[in-house]
Design a protein around this nucleic acid. Sequence first.
DNA 1: CAAATATACCTAAGATTCTTTGGTATACAA
DNA 2: TTGTATACCAAAGAATCTTAGGTATATTTG
Lengths: 88, 88
Amino acid sequence: MYGYEITQQVKEQSEGKILLTEGALYPALHKLEADGLLTTERVMIGKRMRKYYTLTPAGNTAITDKIKEFYSFLEAMQLIIGGKPKNT
Amino acid sequence: MYGYEITQQVKEQSEGKILLTEGALYPALHKLEADGLLTTERVMIGKRMRKYYTLTPAGNTAITDKIKEFYSFLEAMQLIIGGKPKNT
DNA sequence: CAAATATACCTAAGATTCTTTGGTATACAA
DNA sequence: TTGTATACCAAAGAATCTTAGGTATATTTG
C-alpha cells in the first residue's frame, strides 16, 4: 500500500475510530524504511507520485512479533482491569 | 493504593508482562492529582511514608471513560489486524 | 554484623512519538 | 474559480516513557 491509502484504509476499516494522520504516519514509514523493515517503489499515476511500501522479510518478522506482543499486552491488561470487551 | 504498591501489583497481576516503572508512574500520579482525578492521604508506617491515592468522583468517571475508549480501540484494531481484506 | 535487597518516595535529561500546522502539487466537482 | 480530494512531506510543540540517578528506612542474608 501507499501512505495516503493507509490513512484512508485505517479510517475506513476502523469505522472512523482510529485516525492515523499523515503527520504521524509518514515519519513512521520513513523510520521503518531506514530500519530495513520496508522497501519503497515509486510509481507515477499520471503526473502524481505514489510510494508503495512493501514489507521486507525482516519487516514480516517484526510485524508478526509486534502483533504477538500486542496480544500478550492485551492478556496482561485483561488480568489487571478484568472484564471483557462489550458488544463485539 | 499507594505508588510502590501499584508498580508491584501491575507486575504481579500481569505475570511480569507489564513493568510500570516508578519514573513513569509518579509523574503520572502527580498529573492525575493536579487534574483533580485523585486525592492523596499521607500515612506513616513506622518512620516510612506512604501516599495512598483515591479516585475522586471525576476520577471514577474518567477511568470508566478511558476503559470504554480502550475497548473501542481494541474493536477497531480487531477490524484492522484481524480485519477483512477487500481482495485476496 | 556488614552488605545486599526490598520498601517508598521523588526528579531530571534524553529519547520517542503524536498532534498540530504548515507547505507543494495535481485532479476533479460544485 | 473555489473547494475538496488525492499525495507527498517537514517542523514546532506537547506528551509520555526510559534511563539513571537521589534520599531514606527496613529486612534479609552471607
